[in-house]
Design a protein around this nucleic acid. Structure first.
Length: 110
DNA sequence: TGGATGACCTTAA
DNA sequence: ATTAAGGCCATCC
């Protein structure tokens, strides 16, 4: 496996319940800021095998990026089950639930 | 305009 | 057949 994949998986598995991350964010933390699609790929393929909390991954807008309606609703239900308020449009409060990782609490964007 | 973002599709072992 | 890696490009703001 590539270090990127391993790191990405590690990051994903490090997302606490009630928190979400964006593709680009994970990709950036994994080492490739432009590899958001790789995260997509990983979540799509390796999530099941590696038992990843794929439902905690949303797009940069804080919305469920899944096209498959079934999985889409599944993610929403999973998120709500963890305490994440999911909008009817499948959007979550990114500013509130986005996992900032182990970084300091930078309130620059707040 | 341009840059960021994306739950894909293809190839390889 | 399965599992993992890679990347161009359309879309939105």
């Amino acid at each position: 496996m590539t270090p990127f994949t391993e790191k990405a998986i590690e990051i994903i598995r490090n997302i606490p319940e009630g928190s979400v991350m964006t593709y680009g964010q994970i990709a950036a933390l994994a080492g490739s800021p432009r590899a958001a699609r790789q995260i997509v790929r990983i979540l799509h393929s390796m999530s099941k095998k590696h038992r990843l909390p794929w439902h905690r991954i949303v797009n940069a807008k804080g919305e469920v990026a899944i096209k498959d309606d079934e999985l889409h609703h599944e993610q929403i239900m999973s998120l709500r089950d963890e305490g994440v308020k999911v909008d009817h449009n499948g959007k979550v409060d990114l500013e509130k639930y986005q996992w900032r990782g182990s970084l300091h609490t930078r309130e620059t964007t707040l």
